[in-house]
Deep mutational scan, measured.
Amino acid sequence: MATVKFKYKGEEKEVDISKIKKVWRVGKMISFTYDEGGGKTGRGAVSEKDAPKELLQMLEKQ
């Protein structure tokens, strides 16, 4: 499965596409929420050019 690499609050993070719950576009950025486990929801964003094609496909399906 594909992963998304991004920075959040200065920390490098990587999340599996299957854990992503919601995806939306903000200008040229793709924002998303994902399941961190333990009932927590994380947030992240990547630029449109750095987003994996699976993430862009999720955006188109909504």
Rank of each mutant, 00 (worst) to 15 (best):
M1G: 15
M1T: 15
M1C: 11
M1W: 13
M1S: 14
M1K: 09
A2T: 09
A2W: 03
A2N: 06
A2F: 08
T3D: 01
T3A: 06
T3Y: 06
T3M: 05
V4N: 00
V4H: 00
V4T: 01
K5A: 04
K5W: 02
K5T: 09
K5D: 01
F6G: 01
F6T: 01
F6Y: 07
F6R: 00
F6P: 00
F6S: 02
K7E: 15
K7T: 12
K7D: 13
K7W: 14
K7F: 11
Y8C: 13
Y8H: 08
Y8V: 10
Y8A: 11
K9A: 13
K9H: 13
K9R: 08
K9F: 02
K9S: 05
K9E: 15
G10E: 12
G10F: 03
G10H: 04
G10W: 02
G10D: 14
G10A: 02
G10P: 00
G10M: 03
E11H: 14
E11K: 05
E11Y: 13
E12Q: 11
E12W: 12
E12N: 07
E12Y: 05
E12P: 04
E12K: 05
E12A: 07
K13H: 09
K13E: 02
K13S: 02
K13A: 03
K13N: 03
E14Y: 04
E14A: 05
E14C: 10
V15N: 00
V15M: 03
V15R: 01
V15Q: 01
V15E: 03
V15C: 07
D16V: 08
D16A: 10
D16F: 06
I17F: 06
I17Y: 02
I17H: 03
I17W: 01
I17S: 14
I17Q: 05
I17N: 02
S18E: 10
S18I: 15
S18D: 12
S18L: 12
S18P: 05
S18Q: 13
S18W: 12
K19Y: 09
K19Q: 14
K19A: 12
K19F: 05
K19R: 11
I20M: 03
I20F: 04
I20P: 00
I20A: 02
I20D: 00
I20S: 01
I20Y: 00
K21A: 12
K21Q: 08
K21W: 12
K21N: 11
K21D: 07
K21G: 15
K21Y: 15
K21H: 15
K22G: 13
K22P: 01
K22T: 13
K22N: 15
K22R: 06
K22F: 05
V23W: 02
V23H: 01
V23A: 11
W24T: 10
W24P: 00
W24F: 09
R25F: 09
R25A: 15
R25Q: 15
R25T: 13
R25P: 11
R25D: 08
R25C: 10
R25I: 08
R25L: 14
R25M: 08
V26H: 11
V26T: 15
V26R: 08
V26A: 12
V26M: 06
G27K: 13
G27C: 15
K28C: 14
K28H: 12
K28R: 07
M29A: 15
M29P: 03
M29W: 04
M29Y: 06
M29T: 11
I30Q: 00
S31M: 06
S31P: 03
S31N: 15
S31F: 07
S31R: 06
S31W: 08
S31T: 13
F32C: 06
F32V: 06
F32T: 00
F32K: 00
T33R: 08
T33K: 12
T33Q: 07
Y34L: 02
Y34H: 09
Y34K: 00
Y34F: 07
Y34R: 00
Y34P: 00
Y34W: 12
D35F: 04
D35H: 05
E36S: 02
E36G: 08
E36A: 05
E36H: 11
E36P: 11
E36R: 06
E36M: 07
E36N: 14
E36I: 13
E36W: 06
G37T: 03
G37C: 15
G37A: 13
G37I: 14
G37H: 10
G38D: 09
G38M: 11
G38L: 10
G38W: 13
G39T: 11
G39Q: 04
G39W: 10
G39D: 15
G39F: 12
G39K: 06
K40F: 14
K40Q: 11
T41L: 07
T41G: 11
T41Q: 11
G42R: 10
R43I: 03
R43P: 08
R43N: 06
R43T: 14
R43Q: 08
R43V: 06
G44D: 01
G44H: 02
G44N: 02
G44Y: 06
G44T: 02
G44V: 05
G44Q: 01
G44R: 01
G44A: 15
A45E: 13
A45Y: 09
A45S: 10
A45G: 09
A45C: 13
A45H: 13
V46M: 09
V46R: 02
S47W: 04
S47Q: 08
S47Y: 12
S47H: 06
E48H: 07
E48L: 02
E48T: 09
E48F: 03
E48V: 11
E48R: 07
K49M: 11
K49C: 13
K49L: 10
D50L: 15
D50Q: 05
D50R: 08
A51W: 01
A51Y: 01
A51F: 01
P52W: 01
P52N: 11
P52Y: 02
K53C: 15
K53V: 10
K53P: 07
K53S: 06
K53L: 15
E54M: 08
E54K: 04
E54V: 11
E54S: 08
E54R: 05
E54P: 10
L55C: 03
L55F: 12
L55T: 01
L55S: 00
L56W: 09
L56Y: 09
L56R: 10
L56N: 06
Q57A: 09
Q57S: 06
Q57E: 14
Q57H: 13
M58L: 10
M58D: 02
M58F: 06
M58H: 09
L59P: 02
L59Y: 11
L59I: 03
L59V: 11
E60N: 04
E60F: 03
E60W: 02
E60T: 04
K61L: 12
K61T: 13
K61W: 13
K61I: 14
Q62L: 07
Q62K: 01
Q62T: 04
Q62M: 09
Q62W: 02
Q62A: 06
Q62D: 15
Q62S: 15
